[in-house]
Design a protein around this nucleic acid. Structure first.
Length: 606
RNA sequence: GGGGCGGUAGUUCAAUUGGUUAGAGCACUGGCCUGUCACGCCAGAAGUUGCGGGUUCGAGUCCCGUCCGCCCCGCCA
């Protein structure tokens, strides 16, 4: 019981005149009323100094026995995080006592009256800029963590971003329209969160993975320009940049082509970053096509600030005697290289660590490497397998020179690229091979419409993406060569958002579903309502969706979504503060027609 | 589902090869102190070493299992 030992006061008629961080020299001489939390207190026996904190900042308030014996007496009871209101006079500090490190350091408040509004348990960690505690501790004590300046500031920026987005899109003629949270389960894409229906026992709603179909329906309904700051849900495993519930800026517009959508997208991003956080993104955003991104960076979300690039060597090894590499090529894979020049600082020990890292964590078969010595020789575990011609061609392709280190991957294309792109970013950052730009936005365009997965065509993004007009004739004859109208927005190597034009003609949409392997009946069964909607007079339309949480994460420089969401989930999808998910009363289940699969075991709560 | 790192006082960490009563900083509690802002000084309290089992004369330390947090692969756009 935190407050059993002290007598509390009511707030009474006392009302704030200033926020703590707003009391400055211009208020000297005024009587002010401040409310907040005791950040720290220094009791000198006589005079007591208390740093009073609210979300605007910290101000020093002073209790003196000869100014107000009553307030001073109560001031001795103050402890960290107690909630108080003080009434007092703003004094200019003497020259020797000015604290230049504090924005309010020129003044202090001489307290005449203290009201102790609430006591508080001692904080589990200091309420400071630097966390100083493990994340599990921070998550369990989320309220204290949220009092820390980085989270206060992140949520304030998050707020400004909402306001800015709404203003910009409203100005652009977009209508904000809400779509249902209780929707229909779809077999495609991510796992759905299901909600049992009480009124239709045995049936389930699904929480939306995105409002994709609903916004297309809104276009058919003639709303022309729609947006929504939508909560989305996906029941997949978490990552630092993936929470099971997240927020998207969702947007759709009619009678436009790709360029018009990208124009809106760029404008929205540039203005909202400026208005929310004073960040200036360089315009125009460069466009990079998918094939080039994969070739040069091995990734469809490259951080182009890192200057290292990959080199394609597949053809060099097609006929090679080096069986490990040739084998990868023969089974349809690729050989690629990440050359790093002037890399003498990379020690043999570090290279060994990299090898074990890519093996263990990324599933690499190995890590071939070559170090070019001062005399031009090759120090390398694989050099002995390479012919002189191969060495010459590698040198040529990678511009290898004394001091260069080359890393090789020979594997299926997606894995080789995934491994090398990871090495590229890790080593690029570690070795400082960056171009100095703070912000590197870009559009990634010309994605393929389909990809092959387990020998079956599947959509690269989602099944409603419209193909490029000129590729339409190849839809049946050469599906993999069909490019989509899909685009991604990449910022600093993070995929912020994506979109496309959608199929507004049901005949094109049906042909695509057919390529995807749906029979006519299946297509009708699963997508009939959409196909019917298209037939009801769908306008050409397209749009995009932005990962809102990721935008805030980049804006505030956080490494994790957990630092830009007020109440995030852990990697196992739990809310450690509330204790969710949790068991429910048997009666609730019965009402829903549900029965748990397993007998209840006492669940450990910690 | 898989790989990796971690879990010792409220908190951040320490504890030799397996060896006495598991220590320190900060925080906390009590006392002293009228200009501090990392206040200072004195004293004190604080632990099921995540949990369970095993090996051993003896386990924070070794072994097995399990729970929890984080990073990554798979999964996810």
């Amino acid at each position: 019981m935190a407050n059993s030992s002290v007598d509390l006061d009511g707030l009474g008629a006392l009302r704030r005149t200033h926020a703590c961080g707003d009391v400055r020299a211009d208020a000297v001489g005024e009587e002010v009323v401040l409310c907040g939390w005791v950040h720290s207190s220094r009791d000198h026996g006589g005079v007591i100094f208390v740093d009073l904190r609210d979300r605007t900042g910290i101000v020093q308030v002073v209790f003196k026995p000869d100014t107000s014996p009553d307030a001073h007496g109560k001031g001795e009871l103050l402890r960290s995080e107690f909630v108080v209101a003080v009434r007092g006079r703003v004094d200019r500090r003497s020259d020797e006592t000015v604290n230049a490190a504090m924005p309010t350091g020129e003044i202090e408040v001489m307290v005449d009256e203290l009201r102790l509004l609430n006591a508080a348990t001692p904080p589990p960690f200091a309420i400071e800029e630097e966390a100083g505690a493990e994340e599990s501790v921070r998550l369990r004590h989320r309220l204290h963590d949220l009092r820390r300046p980085p989270l206060q500031s992140a949520l304030a920026i998050r707020h400004r971003l909402y306001q800015s987005v709404r203003a910009i899109l409203t100005e652009g003629g977009f209508l904000e329209i809400e779509t249902p949270t209780l929707g229909k389960a779809t077999p495609e894409g991510a796992r759905d969160y299901l909600v049992p229906s009480r009124l239709q026992p045995g049936e389930f709603y699904a929480l939306p993975q995105s409002p994709q179909i609903m916004k297309q329906l809104l276009m058919v309904a003639g709303f022309d320009r729609y947006f929504q700051i939508a909560r989305c849900f996906r029941d997949e495993d978490l990552r630092a940049d993936r929470q099971p519930e997240f927020t998207q800026i969702d947007l759709e517009m009619s009678f436009v082509g790709v360029d018009e959508v990208l124009e809106v997208l760029e404008e929205l991003l540039v203005r909202s970053f400026r208005e929310a956080a004073g960040v200036e993104l360089p315009r125009p955003f460069p466009r990079l096509c998918y094939d080039e991104a994969m070739a040069r960076y091995g990734s469809d979300k490259p951080d182009t600030r890192i200057q290292l690039e990959l080199v394609e060597l597949t053809e060099v090894f097609r006929e090679s005697e080096f069986r490990a590499f040739r084998g990868a090529v023969e089974s349809g894979g690729i050989v690629k290289c990440l050359p790093i020049h002037d890399a003498k600082e990379l020690s043999r020990g570090q290279i060994d660590k990299l090898e074990s890292f890519v093996r263990k964590e990324l599933g690499a078969k190995g890590l071939g490497w070559v170090r070019v010595t001062d005399d031009g020789g090759w120090q390398s575990p694989i050099a002995k397998f390479l012919s002189d011609d191969e060495r010459a061609r590698i040198s040529e392709a990678t511009s290898a020179r004394p001091g260069s280190v080359l890393f090789f991957q020979a594997d299926a294309a997606d894995r080789a690229n995934a491994i090398l792109t990871r090495l590229r970013t890790d080593l690029g950052e570690r070795l400082g091979r960056v171009d100095g730009r703070e912000w590197a936005p870009l559009f990634l365009v010309d994605f393929p419409l389909f990809v092959i997965e387990d020998g079956q065509f599947t959509y690269a993004h989602q099944p409603f993406v419209a193909p490029l007009d000129e590729d339409l004739p190849k839809l049946e004859s050469d599906p993999l060569a069909v490019r989509g109208t899909h685009y991604d927005v990449i910022l600093n190597g993070v995929e912020l958002g994506s979109g496309s034009l959608r199929n507004h003609r049901s005949d094109v949409q049906r042909r695509i579903l057919e390529v995807l392997g749906y029979s006519k009946e299946e297509a009708e069964d699963r997508f009939g309502f959409l196909l019917n909607a298209l037939d009801a007079g769908a306008p050409p339309h397209g749009g995009f969706a932005f990962g809102y949480d990721r935008m805030v994460m980049l804006l505030v420089g956080a490494d994790s979504l957990r630092d830009v969401v007020a109440f995030p989930k852990t990697q196992r999808g739990q809310d450690l503060l509330m204790g969710a998910p949790s068991r429910v009363e048997p009666g609730q289940l019965k009402e829903l027609g549900l029965r748990p699969a397993r007998k209840d075991e006492p669940r450990r709560d910690s």
